[in-house]
Design a protein around this nucleic acid. Structure first.
Lengths: 184, 184
DNA sequence: TGAGACATGTAATCAGTTACATGATTAT
DNA sequence: ATAATCATGTAACTGATTACATGTCTCA
């Protein structure tokens, strides 16, 4: 139902739109939080019109169809926005990789974590640049701030994990160097 | 492919296991990072055996089948663990809700954010309790620390957003009280 | 003998991806 | 004329959920 909510919200905010318009909208700043391709959007718009949440307001050149939100659509959107999600399913590949990290040799794990810290830093810079471009209090501002905070947490976690692994690597190397703890 | 990796990893760590064993394993601490039900696990195990990543090591009572990891399975697991994921698709309902928050009246948004701060705090407490139970350096330790940091970021973001909304609500109320800014 | 845990499966459905397919309009 | 952009769709497939379906073993 998230795709429906996103489509309803986009039309609510920007007014009547075609599938083509909406597809492009999903490639803008919204892409940081949700993605959808035209092959998913077009059938969904048809279903939503069939369900009375949207209506075809206008048919333009090249078969262009402009969808407007109906009262039922607005009700559905408000309903979705205000429902409280208890117990969501967790299926996060990044978390799974963190969970399974101990299966790798220390050096390899450190390499991967370094890359991850770098990626989080890059994403963070990207969001900061976006904020400069669109301003402090633009429409997606709350999500932007949230992304920044989570990227900071991700980077700091990766650095913490690297530090931890490095300490245990040192201890291990130490042990290897003087296996019995006794000089000759 | 994440499910495959998780199954291979569980068998790698705990030794030969049945679908039933693995299903229960997904209900333990792993449930914080990935979920899978028996109806997904059983067919996947069969496919993995057909692909040579696992082999049926033993058939027990009640039709129990114990799967062991093969050399090909270990190679596949290592491959998955070390591949660097560039550009992952984003589809995060919590982020979408944050993005669309400005569509709600301020008071309603504050309510939802309060609930979200509370939920993050609860999850954080849950993870802290888990850490006390399983110890600082247990197998899922890296993921646990990561979860804690992200839940902290989530709670802090929600509190920040509430504060921001409260300030603009106050400003709005102020305006309503003395609409022209002039006393009579 | 009956409850509860053990144990494995399939079918229908939903959300999403990738690839295929078609054609109209506009600007150079 | 032709390339770019506008514009909409469908089909095959993958991963996941929910519901249905079946049967065994153990212990009180």
């Amino acid at each position: 139902m998230s795709l429906r909510a996103a489509l309803l919200a986009l039309i609510e905010v920007a007014g009547p739109s075609s599938g083509y318009d909406l597809t492009k909208r999903f490639e803008g700043s919204l892409a940081h939080v949700w993605q959808a391709s035209h092959s998913q959007i077009y059938p969904e718009l048809n279903r939503m019109a069939a369900d009375g949440l949207l209506k075809v307001e206008e048919e333009g050149p090249r078969g262009r169809k402009t969808y407007a939100i109906t009262a039922a659509g607005q009700a559905e959107l408000y309903q979705w926005l205000t429902e409280v999600k208890t117990e969501q399913r967790v299926r996060d590949e990044a978390s799974l990789r963190a969970f399974l990290l101990p299966l790798l040799p220390g050096q390899k794990a450190i390499e991967l974590l370094t890359e991850r810290a770098r990626a989080a830093e890059t994403k963070k810079a990207e969001l900061e640049a976006l904020r400069l471009r669109v301003g402090e209090s633009s429409f997606g501002g709350f999500a932007l701030e949230r992304g920044l905070r989570h990227m900071t947490a991700e980077r700091d976690w990766a650095l913490w994990a690297i530090d931890r692994l490095q300490k245990s690597e040192e201890a291990r190397t130490e042990t290897v160097r003087t296996p019995t703890g006794e000089p000759e």
